[in-house]
Write a protein that binds this DNA or RNA. Sequence first.
RNA 1: GCUGAUGUAGCUCAAUCGGUAGAGCAGCUGAUUUGUAAUCAGCAGGUUGCGGGUUCGAGUCCCAUCAUCAGCUCCA
Length: 643
Amino acid sequence: MKILLADGQLREFEGSMSVAQIAAAISGKLAKKALAARIDGKIFGLDTVPLDGSRVEILTFEDEEGKKALWHTASHVMAQAVLRLFPETKLAIGPAIDTGFYYDFDAIRPFDAADLEKIEEEMRRITQEDLPVERIEMPRDKALEFTADNPYKQELIEDLPKDTVLSFYKQGEFADLCAGPHVPSTGRIRHFKLLSVAGAYWRGSEKNKMLTRIYGTAFEKREELAAYLEMLKQAKERDHNKLGRELKYFTTSDVVGQGLPLLLPKGAKVMQTLIRFVEDEEEKRGYQCARTPLMAKSDLYKISGHWDHYKDGMFVLGDERKDSEVLALRPMECPFHFIIYNSDIHSYRELPIRYCETATLFRNESSGEMHGLIRVRQFTLADAHIVCTPDQVADEFKGVLGLIIHVMRCIGIENDIRYRFSKWDPRNTEKYIDDPQAWETTQVLMKRILDEIGLDYKEADGEAAFYGPKLDLQFKNVYGKEDTLFTIQIDFALPGRFDMSYVDKDGTKKRPYIIHRSSIGCYERTLAMLIEKYAGALPLWMAPEQVRLMAITDRSLDYLKGWEQKLKAAGVRVTLDERSEKIGYKIREARTERVPYMAIAGDSEAEKGTLAIRKRGEGDIGQMDGDAFIDLVSNEIMKKVIF
RNA sequence: GCUGAUGUAGCUCAAUCGGUAGAGCAGCUGAUUUGUAAUCAGCAGGUUGCGGGUUCGAGUCCCAUCAUCAGCUCCA
């Protein structure tokens, strides 16, 4: 048989051979490392015999799909161990994920830490038994019979077309419904660790039963596993929820409540810097600032549709059944900007009109969802709404993206985000305005714009806003969990609901398009991301403390006080550490506090009129004339952009 | 909201079987005048998240509640 290998080489093998045998024929080392194979673009197990002329790529732990095969088998090993220890447990599903694997169990009681250890021990036994993993195929009715005692598997099978041939994977006494592929034997799983237990709804719906999920991960080498566990530990050190508190950026209080963080002076300083920067940048780009109320009567939200689609997420003041007037804190501010637009008639000549606002918003998130500065009940959004004619939409969209990219460069996260094109879910009529035609045309329009720009994006169904599709800019936190940082949305629904119009060239009234967007997202969340990205060492221009002056002796203290005044006058955020004792410790502390510049002075500096400068990340850069230092720092603050 | 875990000084942690809440760092006071991980001495810091209960006695056991964490669901 002839096989086209991944390196482009066409190789002839004698008779028909499985992928495992092909790998062995190529090299013993490859055979040992092989985990799965890509045959003509599809992933298979190593026991697969490819057709003559197939293109075969042997997958190892270095390949995404090879890793997944190993992790998937690991999840089966875990399930097998659980069944050995707790035979009455029912298995639900257990896939590989980006960082390892999990399995959902319907257990008699939830597993605790001690159970995890026992399960891990039993897994070790199963891997040492080195059981071969076999694929078994059976028709649907037979599969139903085979899984008769497991309602979850039955449900999965029932959902598949009647003529489907189902596959099971068997290792020792254990067999599980599974599409595969898997690695050839349980002995291939060597270095693994169970990480956590959590609840998870069956098939991801809160209406279903909550199952017990165990997360784990596995690696090829002991050092890789150790490195991964170490990475998890270090991620904790960067976690904004820990670091942000340690660095005194924010705090929370039992009596203030959940999801209501309090920004301390340092955090507030960073936020103020970002707000000033964004508001100035928006003004340069033709936005007009508006100020609108934090609450409104229910009437407004009834027009906008929030009352029907978003009421659960709102703080409603008053009781609809009793009170003649019910107010609600705003969860979004679009309706307010639309009312501003409607307060006058507009000519096509005025468009586009861009209203921006640093907007405080309130959303009544459910209790388990709050998290540090990332998910909160009150937040500050750099919000804006652009009213434009249909032919202006594409340019305005690009203009918004240009602004966002500029902002990302200035805060240094341009390469850390992923673009997501968020579309609606036609089946979810409760969440989305039910107008399939309008959804279709708007999504096509947005896709055209995205493709014109040549953006590298992923599509996601069921992630749109209730009034239109979105381009979301996604950011991963230290634990790899993804959140939306910025968003641009095209709205086809609200202009009609608010009966917005402009007078066109021909003197008739036309319906405008609306773009909703946030330039830097919500400041609280962006701040959290920045703390994690920079491990607290924020870039100079936004750092709450830009320069720290330190006196070696009391004699140099007066000298430094002079420079403190001059630095302040130049707009530099400076602090003076008056305690000259423990200077080594203080410098070290300043380093871990991520102060960009330290200027140290003793008797010799005071005599010469210089400062000894230490720059974050670079160490001592020598003595410098005080005025030259002020110029250096001010220039760097002005520049902003992080390369 | 759901499942599980956790709340002791500003931070990190200790307190045996239910038997007087304790240490380091940080803070304050004084001495020290010092050049890159730690000068010395002293002082202060707590209704053990809050509220009930069991007990002669509760940080420890039970109930309730608030908050925090991980995950699910939801979302900027």
